[in-house]
């Protein structure tokens, strides 16, 4: 499987903020999208997820077969928001996403253990601190299987220990033949990851 983008350009509010961006990610590879604020990292990820239409260019997931015909259905998208309901418990939130997303992989309790939240699964999500909320959202990546992980500032709000743990989870995903595209300012602990610098021509 191979995620390929050719001459993509994206616009926000009618203004083209990047153009001619091409890259390819194969199985087991990661791509770090870096660049200053406003360079279009989030826009690029939302285009990859199918949430926005590209202004120009082509985007394809080659060799996904019938199961993963396109990037959207084949991806986990971890955006700025955690997509969890504060009134439900951590467990209820994750059980819902597992049933809704399908392709169950880890059980909810295994995933919570992997992110170090196993003691507080019964608490309402609203009681959690920012870092704990982020880790609960990361647990969503683990409960159902998607080959492509699209991560937008995934480590925002995480402390050093949790960052390390998350790095391990990402390396595990790559070892199993997954792909990662992450917008980030920080090294995520992924050796050999490609880098896509955005907003270069603007400066």
């Amino acid at each position: 499987m191979r995620l390929a983008a050719e001459a993509l350009s994206g616009e926000r509010g009618g203004e083209v903020i990047f153009s001619g961006t091409s890259f390819a990610v194969a199985c087991g590879e990661a791509l770090l999208v870096t660049g200053p604020n406003g360079a279009g990292k989030t826009t690029l990820l939302r285009i990859l997820a199918g949430l926005l239409r590209p202004a120009a260019g082509r985007l394809a997931l080659d060799g996904g077969g019938e199961e993963w015909p396109d990037v959207g259905p084949a991806c986990h998208y971890l955006g700025h928001f955690n997509a969890m309901k504060t009134a439900l418990t951590v467990e209820e939130n994750l059980v819902f996403w597992q049933r809704f997303l399908g392709q169950a992989r880890m059980t909810v309790s295994e995933a919570l253990e992997a992110v170090g939240l196993e003691d507080i699964e019964h608490l309402p999500f609203g009681y959690l601190s920012t870092g704990q909320r982020r880790r609960a959202a990361i647990a969503r990546l683990l409960i159902s299987y998607r080959p492509v992980w699209l991560l937008d500032e995934p480590t925002a709000g995480l402390d050093r220990a949790s960052e390390g743990r998350f790095g391990q989870l990402m390396r595990g995903h790559l070892r199993e033949g997954g792909m990662i595209v992450a917008a980030t300012h920080l090294p995520l602990g992924l050796e050999g990851a490609g880098e896509l610098r955005m907003g270069e021509e603007a400066t």
């Binding site: 259905p73 700025h80 928001f81 997509a83 504060t86 997303l101």
Partner: peptide
């Protein structure tokens, strides 16, 4: 939309 769940529903369009 505020908590990001809407994005998930949009992405899951192919499945649901």
């Amino acid at each position: 939309r505020e908590d990001g769940s809407l994005d998930m529903l949009l992405i899951a369009d192919g499945r649901h």
